[in-house]
Every structure is written in C-alpha cells, then in structure tokens.
Design a protein around this nucleic acid. Structure first.
Lengths: 222, 222, 222, 222
DNA sequence: GATGAATGAGATTTCATTCAT
DNA sequence: CATGAATGAAATCTCATTCAT
C-alpha cells in the first residue's frame, strides 16, 4: 500500500500510532493544549460555516462560532485564505483516510473503486466550500493532491490487474472524473439529492473494460 | 424543432428582423440608440470580466472596461445580480442557439449528442461565472434552463429512438453530466488542456446502449 | 527671481490669473466642484487634526470632522499616508508662497533672511504634524523641497552679495538650520512659547559675516 | 560637581559598588538573578528597537529580540510607556554620565561646551525614540531633565565666568539648542552625514560673547 | 516567575449602491 | 440620461494588554 505509512501529515490528526507519544512531550506542549483546542475549534467552526455558506462568509462569524476572538483567529491563520485552505486540506485529508481504510477492507477491486467514488461524493455532498474551492484554488494542498493521486493510482492498478478497467485509463483520468462528479453533487445538492448517483453509474460504466475503443490522446502542445 | 420559435428572449438580442424599425422613430430613438450602445458595451465588458474573474469582481471594473459611468451601469441593471443574470442568460442563449444549429445540421443522433457535449465544454467551461452559476443557482435564468432542457431532451429522444442510448437515461441525467464536466474543465483547464476530452469520452461511453444495467432510482424523499 | 514664475503647482491653488478661466470650463468641471469641496474639507480637517494631535490619529476622526464618509476620504487619499503627505505638502506650499511674497517685499537682504526664518517658525509652531513628519519622511514632496531650496538659495545669494553672510555658508546649511529650528519650536511648543526666538537669534548671529572662521568641511566619504 | 552624587537613579543601573551585595542573598537571589538578566535583555533589546524604529514599534518585536515572552516583559514593565520611559531614562543617564566625565576632563570651558554638543549630537541624534521624546514630552524623565539641566547650567557658568559666552544666554537656551540640533541630525543623518557639524558650528559661533546684542525676551504671557 | 497564546477594541480598507451635478 | 463622486456598512487586519498553563 502506497499511502499506508503516511496517513496523517498534520500533527493533530495522528491517532493511529502516536497516541502513546503525545503525553511523552508535556513540557513543550505546555500551552499548546489550549492553543490546539482553539485551533481545532476554529477549524471546526470554519468547516461548518464554509460548508453551509461557502467561502464568502464574514470571518467574524467564524470567530463567534468558534468562541475565540478575532486576534486568536488571525494568530492561527494570518489570512482568510489561509484558513480556507487549511480547512479544505484537513477535510480532504480526513476523507482520504476514510477512503483509504474502506478501500483496504474491500476485496473486489471494482467494488473498491466504486466505493471510493461513492464515498467521496457522499462526503462532499455535505460540504459546499470544499467543492467550490476546487474551482478557485485548484484543490487543497499539493501534499493532499499527491496522496490522493497515489491512492487512486493504487485503485486503478488493482482494477487494471484484474482486467476490469479500460486499458488506457490513467490515474489523471480518474482524478479528473472524481472532481467532475464532485461538482455534480453540488449542482444537484438540495434540489435533486441522489441524482448524482445516476451520473456516477454512467461514468463508472464508461470506465469498464467492456469499452474497448481507445481514449483520445491529449494534445501534447501547451 | 422545439427551440426554433423563440431564439432570443431578451429585447436587445433580436437584431435579425428588427433593424428596420429603429429609424422609424428617430428623435426619440436618438437617445435610445445611445442607451442601447451603452447597454451593449456594459454587457460585453461584464461578459468578459465575469468570465475571467468570476462573479465576485468589483462593479467598477466592469464600468471601467465598458467605458460608462457607474450611474449608467446601474440605470441599465439596478443590481449587480441583475447584470450577472442578464449576462449569463445572454451567453447561455447564444450558446444554445449555436448548439441548436449545430445539432440540426448533424445527421447522426449520437454524433449530435457528442457534438453538444464537445461544444458546451469548449465554450462554457472557460467562463468562470457560468460555471459558478451551475453551483449557485442550478443554472442561469429559468427560461434558459427550460430551453436548454428542451434541447437536450430533443437530443436524447433522437438517440433513444435510434436505440443508441441507454434506455433509462433521463434528460436530467444529461444536464447534470454536462454541468459537472463543465466545472471539471474549468478546474483543469490551464494545467491539463485536452484532458477533459478523455473523461468526456468515458462518460459518453457510459451512456451508450451497450450498458444495459438500469441506473439507480433517486430516492423519492426530499 | 527664481520661483516667481511657478508660484502654485497644485491646480486648486492657482488664484493669481486663473479666476477668469474657471467659469470657462463648466462642462468638464461638472462634478468636480463638489469633489473639490470635499477634498478641501478633508485636507482642512486633516490639517487641523494632524496639527493638534500628530500623525497617529484615527482616520475616522478626520472623516467626521470633514463631514464626509470613509469611502470619500479613501477615494481621495487611498492611504492614510497619502493624506498625511498631501496635507504636509500643501501646508508647506502655502507657507513657501507666503515666505516668497514676504521676502520679495523686503529690501534689506538680511532682514529678508531673518523674516524668512521668523515666518517658517511662526507657522510651524502651530502645527505638530508638519514637523513630526520631517523626521519620519524626510520632508514633504521633493518638488516642495526643490522650491524651498531655490528660494533659500535666492535669499542666501542676496545676503552674500551684500557681504552680510559668512562666506562659506551653503544653501544646504540654511535648509538644515531651518529644519533644526522647526523642531525647536515643537519642543518648546506649549511650555515655553517664544523661547525659540532666542535660539533663532543665536543661530542667525552665527551666520553673520562677522564670524570669519571657516566652517568644517563635511567628510566626503559615505 | 553638581551631578556627581546621584549617578544612577534606577535600581538596576548601580553596578559600580553594589556587585558585592548580590552573593549575600543567594537562595532568593537565584531567581532574582534570572529576573535581572531578563530585565537587562529587555532593556537592551528595547533600546535597540526604539532607537531604530522609534517608539511606535510593536511590543512583540522587543519581546522577540530580547528572547523573553510577552508576560515577562509586562511583568517588568506594566506598560509600553513604562518601558519606553525607562529605556529613555537609562540611555539619557548613561549619556549624561559620559558627558559629565568628558566635561570634567576638559580644561577649556568653551571646549567643554563644544564637546558637550558634539557628544549629544553624535550619540543621541541617531536614536529615533530619544529624539521623538524631545517633541513629545519635553525630554525623558523629569529627573533626567533636571540632571541635564544642572549639568548644562554648570557648563554655562564656566563659560560665562570665563567671559566666553554671550551674557544673556540661559541654560534653557542651551537645552533647546541641543534638542533642536538633535532632531536636525536625525533628519539628515543618512543623506548628509557630517553636515550637521557645520550648523553646530554656526550656532556655537552665535553663542560666543563676540555677539553683543541682547537676545529677545520671551513674552511673559501664556 | 516565565511563557506565549488569547483578547477585542480599534485601525484601515473595500465595494455595492445612491445621488448631486 | 450620463457621470463618477459620495456613502457607510461590512470586512480584514493590528497590537497593547491580559491570563491560563
């Protein structure tokens, strides 16, 4: 497994094996506890607010909801954008961890791939800002992007080895497909919940090895 | 043809046969002509600016680029949103006319459908505000949405009649597919030009009647 | 006279011969009247506030005192610093015009020089920010500085020709002396008004040709 | 000597004979030593920062440069102003001690006076906060001011007794002269180094008894 | 005592919209 | 009608001071 050894790059999200290590550094962590709690509160509030109202909300709303002052917020995230990026990256990360876990537990490669798409879309259907931001920033942190890439590549290889996937499908294709579907979720959000599952099914069917015609090569120029 | 009889719902976009009427009321139209020119300039500038920078731009930028004062802009469009909606509707309209024309000229139903997707992705997905609007409101004006719906429904029927389309694909499915791909293109547009054609191909293959399994029914609740 | 032909470089301060021309350009000046009035009000209020309280005041105080909104203030002066610099430059300018006029009207060269120093110090004794800023910004606009330089050079030449001034006194010496005395005025401001006149007298006496020893050459390095 | 008996009014600045007392109370002083070191570090850093950037700097900058936390800084100096005043007073004090020492070692009264001015301009005028303080408060602490006054008065008396000084020059005149020249040096410091020596010379020449005309009496009013 | 994060009242700046000319 | 300055309510950001650890 490619991603198995680096599941959580952010310090506060390291529950797998680091729980015993945390109390090992009490002196240095002196004040960190409170700060970390605030940071978490901010991120949570920001996550909720961004999810509900998108990225154009008043920063004070986030400060209010997280119970911290403006100064605290700006200490942790010197800019509204910093906050947004961090929130996105974190949610992305959490989701990726879930996805990874679920995929590992699934025997059938095709079902693992299917489950992956199901999960990403289910998760993001609840979060407006996450998807909005793909358009604005081109996705979260590059580190997240890379982990995601590796993970999807893994799924692809499994399916390919089992002869289930169209032979010339690349990882980039799958990434783009997932981001495209993400936005389908937003489009139908409240009005047509569940509609996106149909489009997902269509796309997945288009990925199966039953489709034999080669995909168009992207023009090398530009 | 479904859309043929209502090509341009907005008043200023009916140049085909109305040009002779203008000189009929010269004195009063002297002013009107000027106003019309301004309105056109505003719409053009707004179109460009919204496409480049999305719907969150400063109104001044539009006023500047169109060469009119703020007052003039607000005389024509009482609200920034009015302007945005009008621009969107107009562009949508123009695009729909093109799409319609192109589809009419294409014999093969499947190719008509394919061409439609090609066109929407080529044309609209570079336009930030258009894509934003998919997420925000589910499409521009409702009248546009309806025309679009009718048009796509027409394409769907042609393909269905020819037995080329998966039997339970709905018009809503096709609409959703197109909007989701639009946003994917915007995301990857600059970094991976042409990549989207591969994903489009995958999705289209998933639409073909060769895929026989039924699509999932959206849950009736909500 | 060096400065005679360019007494007022700023547009609104051109009363000498342009009074007849003002009504000649009504169309273009359409809205300018109000804007100019506002600009003047802002500058006046800012001048007063800066003079009273120094450069660290709240901008809103200035907005309030001038009766304009924050937006108006920031339309005219995009930055607090812009406002400060403009105010300073303008006051400097006004003062320089007065000084020039007065010097022209004075026959005796030495008395012209004396009067110049008297005037600059009298004026600035009422304005805290003007002098503060010399320290911070190194003086107002360079154009003002240049005019000032020219003017002082003129005074110096007159005195030198009359044999009243120490032979190796340069214009730079006089400029530095005046700025030094400016700050003496501030230092004694409220507590010892008039005290600065004694120091002024001392310095002027040091300038007279009765002092024959050469002044030290500034080291050429650095 | 007037100033000899009260060289260091602040407690921590009495190292001359008090060093032996420190080891006398070791246990309690263990902590105190640390605190003292911190206090010194803060004062040093504050001195540097205030000198460089003036009194408007962020307190954090001082904390950072001194290597202590904000809490420690505020334990020693309950207010930014307290810190500033202490720093100023201390620097002023050190300078005054030097000045006193130097003056004592100089036989010629006029040269003592000249040396005093040389020294103040060389030392203090590079220090932004010190110079600022002349304008703001009329000098650092009042105790410093008094010592300074006494010292200058002493110099004045020596010169006066020797018949070298203009008869009606007061101590206040000399104080004002020094502070005004300080600020002039700060203004021109970087651009015209050394220029101030010429102006100093001019002013000193104006102080000499060769100038016989009486100085103007400050108006008694206000 | 020391630490540095938290606080929150300001300060600055932006921008959709209105309105005098 | 056109103009673009005016408006002022947000929004973002700073910093002296406090306080939990």
């Amino acid at each position: 497994m490619i991603l198995a050894d680096q599941p959580t790059p952010t310090p506060e999200a390291a529950p797998t094996a680091g729980t015993a290590a945390a109390p090992a550094e009490p002196a240095k962590r002196g004040r960190r506890a409170d700060a970390e709690r605030n940071r978490a509160a901010i991120l949570e509030a920001a996550g909720a607010v961004f999810a509900e109202q998108g990225g154009a909300v008043d920063v004070r709303e986030i400060a209010r909801r997280s119970g911290v002052g403006m100064g605290t917020l700006y200490r942790h995230f010197p800019t509204k954008d910093d906050l947004l990026i961090t929130v996105l990256g974190q949610q992305f990360d959490a989701w990726l961890n879930d996805a990874h876990e679920q995929a590992s537990a699934t025997e059938d490669p095709w079902q693992a791939l299917t489950g992956f798409f199901e999960q990403i879309l289910t998760t993001q259907s609840r979060n407006r800002a996450v998807v909005e931001s793909y358009t604005a920033t081109g996705g979260p942190t590059s580190s997240c992007t890379q982990r995601c890439y590796s993970f999807i590549d893994d799924l692809r290889t499994r399916c390919m080895d089992a002869g289930l996937l169209r032979p010339d499908v690349t990882t980039a294709d799958l990434v783009l497909l997932s981001s495209s579907l993400s936005q389908a979720v937003l489009t139908t959000g409240d009005t047509l919940p569940g509609q996106w599952r149909r489009v997902l099914r269509i796309s997945l069917d288009g990925l199966s090895s039953r489709n034999t015609e080669p995909l168009p090569e992207p023009e090398p120029g530009a």
